[in-house]
Design a protein around this nucleic acid. Sequence first.
DNA 1: CGCCAGATTGAGGACGCTCAATTCTGGTGG
DNA 2: CCACCAGAATTGAGCGTCCTCAATCTGGCG
Lengths: 257, 257
Amino acid sequence: MVRASLAPMDVRRHALALWVDRLQRRSVLSDDDRLTVMGFSGNVVRFATSRDVVKLGECTTHCCLVAEGMVARFGQTAEGLRQLSAVYIPGDMADLHSAVLPRVSAPLQSALRATVVFVPHREVISAAEHSPVLARAFWRDCVTDAQIASEWMLNNGRRDARARLAHLMGELACRYATIGHDGRSFPLDLSQNHLADATGLTAVHVNRTLRQLREVGALAVKDRHGIVLDWSTLSRIGDFDAGYLHLTRETAEDGVA
Amino acid sequence: MVRASLAPMDVRRHALALWVDRLQRRSVLSDDDRLTVMGFSGNVVRFATSRDVVKLGECTTHCCLVAEGMVARFGQTAEGLRQLSAVYIPGDMADLHSAVLPRVSAPLQSALRATVVFVPHREVISAAEHSPVLARAFWRDCVTDAQIASEWMLNNGRRDARARLAHLMGELACRYATIGHDGRSFPLDLSQNHLADATGLTAVHVNRTLRQLREVGALAVKDRHGIVLDWSTLSRIGDFDAGYLHLTRETAEDGVA
DNA sequence: CGCCAGATTGAGGACGCTCAATTCTGGTGG
DNA sequence: CCACCAGAATTGAGCGTCCTCAATCTGGCG
């Protein structure tokens, strides 16, 4: 809720701390590893609605750590239709993968607003080379993103509009719960257009479907926030199970030998 | 085309050679790195149609390298509807990511048939720990898979049935071209049901749509093979551009510092 | 106060689905 | 060698979810 504008250094520290916390949920890091990551540098940049964070075809030199708001990855067809393939919330390293594949094949844009920390690839790669544990943690972070993408594919390909939105909202509620929100109410820095592009629907149909979700008492949207009215209804409609998010070490089944 | 049954060791060597070749298209490997990978062990297992290669929830100890046929990753809804999130052809390390996230959240099945080499995680992890270059190559391999998934999301979310199938076929033709096929004809070890599950359509509609693609002279399917009748028509219909596959080092924009 | 993007609602149309029947194919056993 | 069978491919008819087009309403902002 704190909207007061922090100093860039504080923004960076906070975002890195969230990310380290995320990495630790999935891997066992040493103190040195934590310090290495917390020591990453990076410029802090604020973006208004729908600004390019990373453009298609660009050869990047930095990874984008989300600090505030939301960043979306998308692709578009020749006719200009958009499809979001991922959304990133604070603490997400939106394109960690660019450290090993710097050429951008799916660009990033801010959603309604976003603050991003640009961390140099150089530091990420160097950290990975000096610590096999960090190397695996980074690799694993990319892998969990891929598994979320896999779930989105199922969602968009085989569920109807109500289920798609319910599922997406469930995912967001869970993800925000890991960064300090209560699991029932969460910031929704996405327009209905974004939701449409995330679910492969039209904005009009998203609107009607959100109304349905409200009418059946599953979920409401108010003041740029999603509010889970009833978790059991929402997860039943959305066929939602949080396992694929790998939010706890148990589900990640840490494989450190 | 050679269908003669090779000895298990030859099957493994051949599959590993294809994979190493793939890795080299995207990274610069040393002779040692190549030898390390070629030295991987692994049991060779043949699968008939639609057999479980890796089951949901299982905690795996091996990666699956496809040697022959095709393996598909899929998810399914509570009602049992399926969605493929990836298909793997010979030379693809189907679940390299399982080395760092062994718990399976999206299972693997053989398509019409498949031969798989099960490579121990232990060897993969050990190779990555001894060679930062290999570690990055493995990481990058996972990342390119994720980018393919991203393109599938766009395809399934924002293109109509004709374009979806045309795009998928274009992708397969290109991928097979890198493992010794001519770029026009390629093995299609998928039933129309698999195609439906890959594209988020029904088998009935896939059938009608394939007929359309044949009628407009874009693509034909015959004897378990896809045949590109006219690349320009196919890629126009499918809005297809092979860049996202990162098949050449140039498009991968190798970032070795 | 005017402006613009987003949200909301309505009416009609289309693409792809459902259900169902038939043919085709490859594999099996008598 | 052929009958048989299961699964896949193919075709038809009717229907529904979601799209398209369009108008109106709302809220934030210069």
